[in-house]
Deep mutational scan, measured.
Amino acid sequence: KKKYVIKVYFEDTGKEVEIEAESKEEALEAAKRLAEELGLKIKKVEIYP
């Protein structure tokens, strides 16, 4: 089964997080949740198959 690796870059902090997920949708949801939890804004998202 294919996994996606999503790199999320946050504004202000210069922080980046990698998330593995089964689908792009799932990964983007996780990225949004994470940003909310951390109180950060997402600057850029890169998706690698």
Rank of each mutant, 00 (worst) to 15 (best):
Y4W: 08
L34C: 02
K43E: 14
L38E: 04
I47L: 12
E36C: 08
L34S: 03
Y48I: 14
E29Y: 09
R33E: 04
L28Q: 12
A27E: 00
Y4Q: 11
I42L: 05
Y9F: 09
L28A: 10
E22Y: 05
K41W: 01
E37Y: 06
E11W: 13
K24Y: 13
K43L: 10
G39D: 07
V45Y: 03
K41T: 13
K32P: 01
G39F: 03
R33T: 06
E11S: 07
K7P: 00
E16Y: 13
G39L: 02
T13K: 10
K2M: 10
D12M: 13
A35P: 01
E18A: 05
A35S: 11
I42G: 00
V17I: 13
V5A: 09
E26Q: 07
K3F: 06
A35L: 05
E20K: 03
K15I: 05
A21I: 14
L38Y: 08
K15M: 05
K32G: 05
T13M: 09
I47E: 11
E26W: 07
D12F: 11
K1S: 04
A35F: 06
E20N: 05
Y48W: 12
A31I: 07
T13P: 11
E36P: 01
K15N: 15
K41F: 03
I19D: 01
E22G: 11
V45S: 03
G39H: 08
K1A: 04
I6K: 00
K2V: 12
E20F: 04
G14V: 15
T13F: 11
E18F: 07
V45A: 03
A21K: 10
E11Y: 07
K7Y: 03
E22M: 03
E26M: 07
E18G: 04
E18S: 07
V5I: 07
E25Q: 05
E36K: 09
G39S: 04
S23F: 07
G39I: 02
Y9I: 12
K15Q: 09
L28I: 14
I6T: 03
D12P: 07
K7R: 09
G39P: 00
E46L: 06
E20D: 10
E26T: 07
D12R: 11
E46C: 03
I47S: 12
K43P: 01
L28M: 12
E16F: 15
V45F: 07
I6Q: 00
E16Q: 06
I6R: 00
L28T: 06
V45Q: 03
A27P: 00
E20Y: 12
K3A: 14
E29K: 13
K2E: 15
K32S: 11
V8W: 02
E37K: 11
E18N: 04
Y4A: 03
V5Y: 09
K24T: 15
A35Y: 02
T13Y: 14
K32F: 13
E29A: 15
P49N: 10
V17M: 09
T13W: 10
A30I: 14
E25H: 12
S23P: 00
A21W: 02
E25C: 07
I47M: 15
F10C: 01
I19Q: 01
K2Q: 09
I47Q: 10
A21N: 02
S23L: 03
E36S: 12
R33Y: 07
I42V: 09
E20Q: 15
K44W: 09
R33V: 08
K15S: 08
T13N: 14
K2P: 14
A27W: 02
E18P: 02
A30H: 15
G14S: 15
A30N: 12
D12W: 11
Y4G: 02
E20H: 12
K3T: 07
S23H: 04
K3G: 08
E29L: 15
Y48M: 09
E26K: 05
Y9D: 02
A27Y: 02
A21D: 02
E22K: 03
A27H: 01
L34P: 00
E22L: 05
E25R: 04
K3P: 12
E20M: 11
K7M: 11
E18Q: 14
G39E: 11
E37M: 05
L40M: 09
Y9A: 04
D12Y: 10
A35D: 00
G14P: 07
K2S: 14
I6F: 05
